[in-house]
Computed example of a mutant assay.
Amino acid sequence: MRIYSFDTLPSTQKWLIGKISEGRVEPPCAVIAQMQTDGVGSRENSWIGSPGNFFSSVALPENALPRDLPLAAASIYFACIMKKTLKNMGSETWVKWPNDLYIQSRKIGGCITAKKGKTVVAGIGVNIVDGPHEFGVLDIKISAHELLEAYLENLKKTPSWKHIFSNFRLEFENSKNFHTHFGRETLDLREAVLQNDGSLIIGKRRVVSLR
């Protein structure tokens, strides 16, 4: 897989989606930046961090993803593979529904996905050096480029959604100590029931991750 590397980008996600739209890059490919100044976060927030943190986006053809993956759960899928990558290196990272990477009770990163034609683009940020005071930092020592290479190796294995989800379901209880945002609403996850497609039932409502 070709990797495009930059010292600084406004956003790896915006760069990769833009180049795909222009026909200047073709999936599968990835982009990584040493510094990101206007990254894309959940709910259109910016994800900005210090130089040396992990800022990357990966583009895969839709037909390269497992057939049983519900596209609305793509962020869960990509985040869980990052979690697996980190845990294999000794980290205690877990995934909070639907796309956040946590260590204990502090967020250290997250994943956001977008679909451009028949290409799925997953952007991931991880605080591996430092982060704002309300965020956490990765509990292992690794460079951004080393992490990207390990992550891409795990993506190449194309684990099924069934396999990813079986592990995610086990740790979903951790998410119940938190809330999530759905549009402009803040939803308490204490009574949420996880469905097989990665969506939640909260009360009488079905909530789908569209990040």
Rank of each mutant, 00 (worst) to 15 (best):
I20Y: 05
H181C: 05
V193K: 02
P27Q: 12
V137W: 03
A144P: 04
M82H: 04
L189W: 01
L138K: 00
T8K: 12
L86P: 01
I81H: 02
E191P: 02
F178Q: 06
P61T: 09
A114G: 13
C80K: 11
T37W: 09
K118P: 01
S91P: 04
L9P: 02
A59D: 00
L69H: 06
N53T: 03
D197N: 14
I164H: 05
L194G: 06
G136C: 07
S57Q: 06
I164L: 07
T12S: 13
S46N: 05
W97Y: 00
Y102L: 05
P98I: 00
S209D: 12
I201S: 10
R43S: 08
G203A: 06
F6M: 01
T8I: 13
T113D: 06
P27M: 11
D130P: 01
V40R: 14
E62M: 14
R106E: 11
E146H: 00
K14N: 14
N53R: 01
V25F: 14
N53P: 04
Y4G: 04
I76G: 05
E62H: 11
E134W: 10
Q34A: 12
H163R: 15
E153I: 10
T119M: 06
I124Q: 09
S42P: 06
E62N: 09
M89H: 09
L86D: 05
L138T: 02
T93R: 07
N45H: 10
A30L: 08
A79G: 11
R211T: 12
G90C: 04
R206D: 11
N99M: 01
L71H: 04
V126H: 00
G136K: 05
L152W: 09
T37C: 10
K115I: 13
L16H: 03
L210F: 14
K162Y: 08
Q34H: 13
P98D: 02
L9Y: 03
I202Y: 11
P159K: 05
V137T: 13
L210K: 15
E153L: 08
S91I: 08
S5P: 03
R205G: 13
G39D: 11
L147A: 04
S199R: 00
I103T: 01
